[in-house]
Design a protein around this nucleic acid. Structure first.
Ligand SMILES: [Mn+2]
Ligand SMILES: [Mn+2]
Ligand SMILES: [Zn+2]
Ligand SMILES: [Zn+2]
Lengths: 149, 149
DNA sequence: AAGCTTATTGATAATGATTATCAATTTCAA
DNA sequence: TTGAAATTGATAATCATTATCAATAAGCTT
């Protein structure tokens, strides 16, 4: 059994929530997937395991996975909310091509450090941040200046 | 007449769009307001000038204002989309208290510089970025560790 | 293992923000 | 002034998400 499953079970117990087969199905589907995925994506994946699974359960379980620290909102500000893995995946920010949607994950230590300075300067206790860079990738900049979105 | 109005009129002409009284009303209401405001906020403000103004027109005009470079999406990832002034307002990022909603605008040159490095490193032509820091302000951290949201 | 309390489920309706549709009205170039 | 074309406000439609609820499943307690 994967570590993530132990964490999930422990989290459920700690909150008095029940370990149900629907939740197991959603977790399994989530662990098998990668990248940024929407509730709809995850529902499709989970239905391959249990075709009877309800959509509402996916939304609900995704929220639990986030609370348990296994998933997090990887919000691009278009379209439906998307989640990504967080357990055993290091922190990163996103660079997105507005031409073709290409997505690059990066981490820039200087930026992370500077962010902490900001928190300190304003007397805030940091809880998170989101940085999204948008532009045209080399391919798209070459072809034309056209953007989608 | 304010500079913003000239810019708006010039933009409309350049796109073959018409200068209508509804659009003037929305622009006037927008220019009188400040901060981050939703379509609903703006509709309320605009209705004080013209009570008959339609909601759809506000959504439509806000989009035009953004295209014209007068407004921009100041997206916090909760709730309805919010716009802020961009003309004669310098670039900044946002620091938000998850406890009380307090919002601080800041600009950190080092971060801006580092972002350009990222764009360069991956061969992207920059078109924008969004950085949002979230945490507890001193007041909220003092009172308790409780977050809203 | 059976009973029992409570959480969970899936279907469905409801919500909130935004966009599409459309007939009536306005704009503005000729 | 005219008339083609854009715009308006009302309204319906859409999309993602959440709420509701009766039926079911979990997991103690015995
Ligand atoms: Mn990512
Ligand atoms: Mn701002
Ligand atoms: Zn691209
Ligand atoms: Zn606060």
């Amino acid at each position: 059994m994967k570590e993530e499953q132990y964490l999930f079970i422990r989290y459920l117990k700690s909150k008095g929530l029940k370990l149900t087969s629907a939740r197991e199905t959603v977790l399994t589907a989530f662990l098998k997937s990668e990248g940024h995925l929407s509730a709809e994506d995850l529902l499709a994946a989970a239905k391959k395991i249990d075709p009877g699974l309800g959509q509402a359960t996916v939304f609900r379980t995704l929220k639990i996975l986030a609370d348990a620290g296994l998933a997090q909102d990887a919000c691009q500000d278009e379209g439906p909310r998307r989640y990504e893995h967080v357990y055993k995946h290091s922190h990163h920010d996103h660079l997105i091509c507005v031409g073709c949607g290409k997505l690059i994950e990066f981490c820039h230590p200087e930026i992370e450090k500077a962010q902490n300075e900001i928190f300190r300067e304003f007397g805030f206790q940091a809880s998170g941040h989101r940085l999204e860079l948008r532009g045209l990738c080399a391919d798209c900049a070459g072809k034309s200046g056209k953007t989608r979105e």
